[in-house]
């Protein structure tokens, strides 16, 4: 048995670079922004202590509530839909069919774009009033609609955009699928389990650590979604605040209206919210995530 001292020493040795980064590059800016959240700070003149004023103001701010609503819809829909889609495609493309490599690459292409300006244009190509979607609907005799600029539908086009860029979780699922020992499937086949039984009895349980990872990360990302709304609405969050994502609002407050103190308070509220949600997922993970330990 190693002594506790030695164990700690080894642990901190491996953790060392990260710890230096945490103290040097992460903690200082984070704590500074926490301090800003209790001040009136316009970026150019020194911050003035304001106590809880920003936090109180937030709860009287109608735009705060609309941004919360938009973000909540986005998180609730895009996270599960994107993950289910990514998992299905990963399983589909994890088989020995012809040209599978080409397919995988093709399915990953949308994610290569990231948040580039090209995405905004492409998105218009599909959803605007003369876009691809309306041409397809036109074939079936359904008359189109301004999908991106009608307040009631604009958020859903962004959710579809998020699902379309499902490559990252798909790749992680594929990598996870490869970690599953092949002998498990052979044993199951000998026991006479069919494909569906194999999926639910072996694939899914063995994949739970990866599903768990993807779920946590997608939740964190979706809460902080910024780029899609920023590039497609030109940073306005319009029409009628229907794509005013929480971080977009926070960005507007901080960078275009110079209320950095207020923006910092918004950011810390978001951190607390995400921490609670991911905390709940972590708590639930003991029930459904299986590690080989």
């Amino acid at each position: 048995m190693k002594s506790a001292w030695k164990r700690n020493w080894v642990g901190f040795f491996f953790l060392g670079p990260w710890l230096i980064g945490l103290i040097g590059f992460t903690t200082i800016p984070m704590l500074t922004s926490l301090y800003f959240s209790f001040t009136k700070y316009d970026m150019f003149t020194p911050p003035n202590w304001a106590g809880l004023a920003n936090y109180i103001e937030i709860f009287h701010d109608p735009k705060f509530y609309s941004s919360v609503k938009v973000t909540a819809i986005y998180v609730l829909l895009s996270v599960p839909l994107q993950l289910i889609f990514a998992l299905l495609v990963a399983v589909l493309l994890n088989r020995g069919i012809r040209a599978v490599r080409l397919y995988r690459a093709a399915y990953y292409v949308p994610s290569l774009f990231g948040g580039s300006v090209a995405v905004a244009l492409l998105w218009r190509q599909v959803f605007d009033s003369e876009g691809l979607l309306n041409s397809v609907l036109g074939v079936f005799g359904i008359s189109g609609h301004n999908w991106i600029s009608t307040p009631s539908t604009s958020i859903y086009t962004l959710i579809i955009l998020a699902i379309w860029q499902f490559g990252a979780p798909m790749v992680i699922f594929l990598a996870g699928l490869k970690q599953i020992p092949v002998d498990l499937y052979e044993a199951a086949r000998i026991d006479g389990a069919n494909k569906f039984q194999q999926f639910f009895k072996i694939t899914l349980p063995m994949l739970t650590p990866i599903i768990f990872f993807n779920l946590i990360m997608e939740i964190i990302h979706a809460f902080q979604a910024f780029t899609p709304a920023y590039i497609v609405s030109g940073g306005t969050g319009g029409p009628l605040d229907s794509t005013l994502f929480y971080t977009l609002y926070l960005y507007q407050k901080g960078f275009t209206e110079f209320h950095m103190g207020y923006a910092s308070a918004l950011a810390w509220l978001l951190l607390v919210t995400i921490a609670i949600v991911t905390g709940l997922v972590f708590a639930s993970s003991k029930k459904w995530v299986f590690y080989q330990e």
Binding site: L22, L250, G254, M260, A267, W268
Partner: peptide, 10 residues
Amino acid sequence: GTLMLPFHVT
């Protein structure tokens, strides 16, 4: 936790 703060404020 470090992943949960929007980068704009840092």
